[in-house]
């Protein structure tokens, strides 16, 4: 018994050492033979399965809403925090404008300027808004309030009918505004003596000693639904 324990300890140690020298991967051991999950069907998850595949609009529910209906929903459920005409209120900043501001400073971030796919607004409003009663709006109400917000942003006309077919087709100005993670993007070295003193963000606007092209150093602040005035000033018509 004792020698058996010893053998298995040695074996375990060898496994540990092998794993320690491997590049990565956690050593969690083998999955236990028994599983304790209980079968469930997709039909049982209808009320839970609320995420929208926003690029395609997959999983958008039936229903429809108009700009006019959305204005009424907005004024009843959203205005208290987000303000008149979604231009910013006591708690949050503007949800209108900023289109064309991504190469400017500040970048003004709104559903109109930032979202690459229109159904993002449906997914978010349904799961999280209004903050004091999430998931309380009907599908018709969510479509309607989305129609209202996108109309204020100049992305859909006043007579637009928002539904599962029309929503994914709205052309979004920031559709191609994203790149996937490509870090590491810095290559610092471990200098020990006679090093360049620690630089600042402002120093990055000056030409790099190594000849690296300096990134365009923005000077202003980016607005994240934070400043009603900046947002309102950006023209919704200024689309790229």
């Amino acid at each position: 018994m004792r020698s058996l324990d010893l053998r298995s300890s040695v074996a375990a140690l060898c496994v540990t050492l092998a794993v320690a020298t491997a590049a990565q991967a956690a050593d969690f051991g083998k999955r236990p033979e028994a599983g304790f999950g209980r079968p469930i069907g997709e039909a049982d998850l209808k009320l839970w399965d609320i995420d929208i595949a926003t690029p395609s609009g997959g999983n958008l529910p039936a229903g429809e809403g108009t700009v006019a209906a959305g204005k009424a929903v907005y004024e009843a459920k959203c205005l208290a925090c987000h303000g008149e005409n979604a231009a910013g209120g006591p708690v949050y900043g503007t949800m209108v404008g900023g289109i064309g501001s991504m190469t400017k400073s500040p970048r003004v971030l709104t559903p109109g300027s930032m979202y690459p796919y229109a159904p993002i607004l449906f997914d978010y409003v349904r799961r999280a808004m209004p903050m004091n009663a999430p998931q309380s709006l009907t599908a018709d109400e969510v479509y309607a309030v989305a129609a209202y917000i996108y109309n204020l942003n100049g992305l859909v006309p006043a007579d637009f009918k928002m539904n599962a077919q029309t929503m994914p087709k709205i052309p979004m100005p920031n559709r191609d505004g994203f790149i996937r993670d490509d870090r590491p993007d810095t290559r610092a070295e471990r200098c020990m003596t006679d090093c360049k003193p620690i630089g600042t963000v402002a120093d990055a606007s000056k030409p790099a000693a190594s000849g690296t092209a300096a990134a365009a150093g923005g000077t202003g602040n980016q607005v994240i639904m934070g400043d009603p005035k900046s947002g309102a000033a950006a023209s919704p018509a200024a689309r790229p």
């Binding site: 400073s105 500040p106 970048r107 590491p184 993007d185 810095t186 610092a188 070295e189 471990r190 620690i198 630089g199 600042t200 963000v201 120093d203 990055a204 606007s205 790099a208 690296t212 300096a214 990134a215 365009a216 150093g217 923005g218 202003g220 602040n221 980016q222 607005v223 994240i224």
Partner: peptide, 23 residues
């Protein structure tokens, strides 16, 4: 510095490859 050889950069080095605007 970590096991991949990556060395923590200065904010200047980060600002040369990313846009540092506010948040």
């Amino acid at each position: 510095k970590d096991t991949t050889g990556y060395v923590q950069p200065t904010v200047e080095e980060i600002a040369r490859v990313r846009e540092i605007v506010g948040f």
